[in-house]
Nucleic acid binder design. Structure first.
Lengths: 352, 352
DNA sequence: TTGAAAGCGCTAACAC
DNA sequence: GTGTTAGCGCTTTCAA
């Protein structure tokens, strides 16, 4: 396909003969120097005379030469590319993270290959394999539930990997997490401070690491305050609107009803907000994870904000340090959260 | 770097000697066949005996062989990778588009390289060059204002390119757009139908293609209804909250005040909602581009919804058709919008 | 059905 | 300062 040039497309001016892209050799010949010299010029290596450099530059411009990075990758083993596997790039938290990673990558003259695992083990694995096959210099992965043991050989072989948002199972590498326990604890304490004693936790599916941690924080806050736990006030389910609506209604209409809710992530928050929209007097609400327009709702929603940009940046910076040869011991970074009071979390419990 | 194996990282079990990744040749030797035979097995080519196939498969598994796609790319010229250059991956519309492109790419066993131009010409250009250097099979670009003439040579040379969301200048290729004029016209007509005659347009920066089109639709709707245009009711500025607030206030407090607003994109909508939050009786509002939680605001926001997923899918499908060799004439696809009435756009004008 | 040879475009290693 | 040689890992081409 590279040899036999692709057929001309109609409607292109001067589409006469789509020519083979000029190679480094073509430049060398045209400039009357050796290939290696052109290579030096292209890569800004020292040891080329000013006049030669100038001449080579001109020829490069004339021919419109652009280096073939596949060849370079093959030779050097580094693709000037890193890979990112997350749950779903279209999700706000992760797209912000992606953007932050991209920014750091650019600073290191790298590009970014992205893949969404959609929480599917097989897809994660396939994506990682495809990325490794492309000789990426390093990998940032938000591990799905399951095991990342399949990555062990590559990590041992020296491919830098950083896990983000959730720790891996069966593989050891640098990891950047949110301090979920402390964040949830802080958020729930905030509700307790307003006088709430019956606080419902509306979380995402069971076996999700972040949710486990946030429930733990929720429990810790109750314990700290000497408030008894009640499992009927803890819900863990995939946040489809229907199911959450039923949960919320039952929590609010129980004999000892919840007077406040704490949500486990943005999807749960959305579902709860939808459920509360048409309901009676709304309970207090603190949401884990900030979201757009939170401050425009009535009342504005108090949140425990995470920092997706900070997570992306941190993960990428660690990754590039490893790529640069840092061999210090693996580290686990926990990013702090920030409580942003906006109104919904500052309501006192309704009079019983 | 490929030759001298990277130093072992501590804390890895069995990190004794990070070994060179096995190559196709290693597999061939171990299996006692020729390299080409292994290549055939790996690529599922016909013409290998069942027994041989079986043996090669086993050796591949034993050695943990994974093909080096740089080498393959170098040989074949195709990287099994496409590139996407958008304004900003972290923006909801574009992250949804990215996700849709990714999905189509996966179906074609391709990966996705992403880059954000941030509306910067130089960055767009650099990104495109970096993508082309990586031998991407094709490119989807949301062109920034300026010129894409620099892409002409590569398009002519046969690299498939699809422009998305905005047309390119100085380069011809397939293009997928939203029918902005018709969408805006429809949205404004909706307001006119509620009896509004003074409708403010709050749009993003001048010289943005989509905004130009949406203003055109706005004007067309007014003309259709025989309502005189008034330039004081048209605002085009980067939607920082401060500036938009001033604009909105002046539109609403003018001698002949606006009784309804139409926003030009999501950022403008956010700014307007913020501005309206603390203001007096809110005007009617129709927003171009849907956004999360639009239905949870009070009142819920009526929007002219675009279809980012449809745009990403369409652009990617066209791209892969081109990659597969389709040489038919370039096409321009315009995706339809959908008016979603939710409340804010169905208010009648306040009694003057 | 299988294999040998050549080379994709580049750079590492070493001459000069 | 500059050039020569070899080869990264794969696939293409052609031969057996």
């Amino acid at each position: 396909m590279a040899q036999s040039p692709p057929p001309a497309r109609p409607g292109q001016e001067g589409a006469a003969t789509p020519r083979r892209r000029p190679t480094l050799r073509d430049v060398a010949e045209a400039a009357g120097v050796a290939a290696k010299t052109v290579s030096r010029v292209v890569n800004g290596e020292a040891g080329v005379g000013a006049a030669t450099t100038e001449r080579v530059r001109r020829v490069i411009a004339e021919l419109g030469y652009r280096p073939n990075s596949s060849a370079r990758t093959l030779r050097q083993g580094r693709a000037a590319t890193i890979g990112l596997v997350c749950d779903d790039v279209s999700e706000p938290f992760q797209s912000a993270l992606t953007r932050a990673v991209e920014e750091v990558a650019i600073r290191h003259e790298c590009m970014l290959l992205v893949a969404s695992s959609l929480h599917d083990r097989e897809r994660e694995r396939t994506s990682v394999q495809a990325l490794l096959a492309r000789q990426v210099d390093g990998l940032i992965v938000t591990p799905v539930a399951g095991s990342q043991a399949y990555l062990g050989a590559d990590i041992a072989a020296g491919t830098p990997v950083v896990f983000a948002d959730r720790p891996a199972v069966g593989a050891e590498a640098d990891t950047v997490l949110v301090d979920n326990v402390e964040g949830a604890r802080r958020g729930v304490r905030h509700l307790l401070e307003q006088g709430h004693r019956r606080i419902g936790f509306v979380g995402d599916a069971p076996h999700l690491y972040t949710q486990d941690e946030r429930v733990e924080g929720y429990r810790a806050a109750l314990r700290d305050a000497g408030v008894p736990e009640d499992d009927r006030l803890i819900s863990r389910q995939v946040p489809e609107s229907g199911a959450v609506r039923a949960t919320v209604e039952s929590m609010l209409s129980a004999p000892e009803p919840a007077t406040a809710l704490f949500t486990g992530n943005a999807l749960c928050t959305y579902a709860v907000l939808r459920a509360l929209r048409d309901a009676g007097p709304p309970p207090a609400l603190v949401a884990f994870d900030d979201f757009p327009l939170a401050e425009l709702l009535h009342p504005a929603v108090t949140v425990v904000a995470q920092d997706p940009v900070g997570m992306g940046r941190t993960a990428a910076e660690i990754l590039f340090r490893r790529i640069a040869g840092d061999t210090s011991a693996d580290q686990v970074v926990r990013l702090r959260t920030r409580l942003i009071p906006r109104g919904s979390g500052e309501r006192a419990p309704a009079e019983g």
